Simulated assay, not measured.
Amino acid sequence: MAGGALYPLDQIVRTEPEWLGVWRQRLALKCAMAAVRLAGRIEDETALRDAWLLRRPGDDPGPSGQILSAWKRLASRSTALDVKSLEAVADLLGIRWDDALASLPDTFDDLRLGGAAAPLAAAGVIARTVSVRADAEMLGWWLADLLLADKLRWPVPVPLMMSQRFSPAFRSEANRGRIRPGEEEFDRAVCLALVQAAAEASRLAADIARRAERLAVVTPKLRAKGAGDAIRLLLSEDAVSGTLQTARLSRFASRRLFERLQQLDAVRELSGRPTFRIYGL
């Protein structure tokens, strides 16, 4: 069932539409929101975007912004894994590194090369992570999407699993609370969660494809010299600051450009504010 649900996503990944980047990054934001909740924090979608986009270059985006950074990194990297790269991710997630976590790349390789189906391998790496360090569950969900992509031979992961951490799929049928990694029903719950995640990702892809098509229609009408820089970012990132500045686009020109794109119904303003605006498909 989970394997069949992943087929539409596989088609999207292999077709490589021009909006593939923004799709992955918006899914990364969705996963980050669930991860922030797991960490006991309260930042929502708007707060996470603000932490990432409104900081000055080089500034620390804060604990929740770092969590978002981990999922943004997942959505733009290969599936290769080693101790050094995993330690860097654990640091972003606020998880203390130790020798127990250093064993996870070997576990990842064992599951990657094993014969288990992709969803069951993903469930396995979550359970293994929690078994070695109960406070590292978030890292297990990050690894699950990395392993899923490797199993499906996707060159870059599609963030899916973490977004379902609090979904009904993990509610115990016996009304005993939530199903935890390693428990008897966990593998089945992961498969059900993956079906739901794939359906939501498919709907998001259809929405983004429609918006990208509209953007392509209006692009020839744009007169700003640096418009191409903004268009490329809109197609590759979840959101773009309304005061974007590039070598060919000033902050003033950028503001005018996004206002024009909004008038043409090619982008949405995502913050709901009259100042410090943020735009995206």
Rank of each mutant, 00 (worst) to 15 (best):
A206G: 14
P8S: 06
M161V: 11
E173Y: 12
A199Q: 15
L160F: 10
M138L: 15
D106M: 07
S167T: 07
S236Y: 01
E237W: 05
K225H: 12
D98Y: 06
Q11R: 14
L74S: 00
S241R: 07
A169Y: 01
Y7F: 15
I208L: 15
V83S: 12
W141D: 00
W71A: 00
P63K: 09
M138K: 06
P159W: 08
T79A: 07
E173R: 13
S236E: 09
R273T: 14
W19F: 09
P155K: 10
R248C: 11
L249D: 00
L281R: 07
A136F: 01
A149T: 05
S131V: 05
R41W: 12
L9I: 11
I42S: 14
V195A: 12
V190L: 12
T15I: 09
L139K: 02
A117L: 11
I95K: 03
V125D: 00
R211K: 15
S271Y: 06
T79Q: 03
A197G: 03
E269H: 06
V217F: 13
N175K: 15
G40Y: 14
W97L: 09
A39W: 08
L244W: 04
A102Y: 06
K72S: 09
I179S: 04
L68D: 03
L27M: 10
A134V: 12
D98F: 08
P17Q: 04
A127Q: 01
E137K: 02
W71S: 00
D82W: 10
D99L: 13
G114N: 09
W141V: 02
R153C: 09
L204R: 07
Q66C: 12
A70S: 08
F258I: 04
C191A: 15
G115K: 06
Y279V: 01
A122S: 11
L9P: 00
K72C: 10
R232W: 10
T107L: 09
R255M: 09
V36S: 01
R273N: 14
G58R: 09
L27Q: 05
R128T: 07
R255E: 05
D109M: 12
I208H: 04
P157L: 07
Q196K: 12
A230P: 00
D59M: 15
D150V: 04
E87T: 08
L192G: 01
R277T: 09
L68T: 03
D238N: 11
A117K: 05
E173A: 13
A239Q: 04
G65W: 06
Y279G: 00
A193P: 06
R188P: 04
R180W: 14
D91V: 13
S254W: 01
V83N: 08
D109G: 05
A2H: 03
S271H: 05
R171A: 13
D238C: 10
L249R: 00
N175W: 15
T46H: 14
L233G: 01
A116K: 07
W23F: 10
I95P: 00
L147V: 06
E18C: 11
I208C: 04
V240E: 00
R171V: 15
E259G: 09
L27G: 00
G280H: 02
A102S: 13
L6C: 02
E45M: 06
A216C: 10
G3L: 14
T219E: 11
I208F: 06
K30G: 03
A169D: 05
L204E: 06
